[in-house]
């Protein structure tokens, strides 16, 4: 069972085109994202990797003039056309953003926000969720005495881990991470990378990163985007050691980007 689950595709993307007005930001993307794996999306700025990530939980809906054609299926259901609401989708597919963005609330309320909008209101239940979520990201001991302090007073790395805790507090099936460490110092970055690797036991993780060592260190699968196209994807080791496409090789060896 677990073997089967590991190989089955969580997301299935077929012939995905995405336009911002008349500009085509994604061109005929065909891609599958495996469950309980870390998939890294790499490529130079403006290549469409972040845009692709945002189509997976429909955060592109907020971009005016954004039009999408093609199939994006989560567990076999199309997230755009099957009548699945974007609310349900986002409850199942959580997101961690580039800039840490805690709510201007207490640490406790940040983590409890997701459970609350899902109808969990009993204090004991919330307490437990907050504790386990903070434990999972390894900041419980640090924070347990100041749960009622504002989250805005934390350092960038602490904030980002809090944001991850907030995301996993609602047990999403997939976690999208949009360059989660680009605003952080090296030590915080390392902690978040370790965390991601631990988390893949329970979650499917898709991470956009600028940092190729990061992709190499933590991901199982890597996809290389360029100018809106998916140039190459495959097991991370293969992509880094033996890229099939010349552009991939040039990017990975640092000749552009």
């Amino acid at each position: 069972m677990s073997e089967k689950k590991a190989t089955s595709a969580k997301f299935y993307v077929h012939d995905l085109d995405l336009f911002y007005g008349s500009f085509q930001a994604l061109k005929k993307i065909n891609f599958q994202i495996a469950a309980n794996r870390i998939t890294a999306l790499i490529g130079p700025s403006g290549c469409g990797k972040s845009t692709f990530l945002k189509t997976l939980n429909r955060m592109n809906d907020f971009v005016e003039g954004c039009k999408i054609t093609g199939d994006v299926q989560l567990d076999g259901r199309d997230i755009y056309t099957s009548g699945m609401s974007e609310i349900e989708l986002r409850q199942r597919v959580g997101m961690v953003f580039q800039q840490p963005n805690p709510f201007p609330k207490t640490i406790y309320d940040n983590v409890a926000y997701g459970p609350r909008i899902r109808g969990v209101h009993r204090k004991s239940e919330l307490d437990e969720i907050v504790e386990t979520s903070l434990r999972e990201v390894g900041i419980w001991d640090e924070f347990k005495d100041r749960l009622n302090k504002s989250a805005l007073g934390l350092s960038g790395g602490q904030q980002q881990r809090l944001c991850i805790a907030r995301t996993i507090a609602v047990h999403p099936e997939v976690i999208l991470m949009d360059e989660p460490t680009s605003a952080l110092d090296p030590i915080s970055t390392m902690k978040i990378e370790d965390l991601a690797v631990e988390m893949k036991e329970k979650y499917t993780i898709v991470i956009v990163t600028h940092n190729m060592q990061q992709a190499n260190r933590i991901s199982d699968t890597t996809a290389f985007f360029l100018l809106g196209e998916l140039i190459e994807s495959g097991p991370t080791q293969d992509i880094f050691l033996n890229p099939q496409n010349k552009k991939t090789e040039e990017y990975i060896t640092g000749r552009f980007g």
């Binding site: 609401s85 609310i87 349900e88 409850q91 199942r92 909008i117 899902r118 109808g119 047990h171």
Partner: peptide, 13 residues
Amino acid sequence: RVEVSQSLIRRAR
């Protein structure tokens, strides 16, 4: 769990 959230989602919407 998903089913519970379905009715909640409907209400929230």
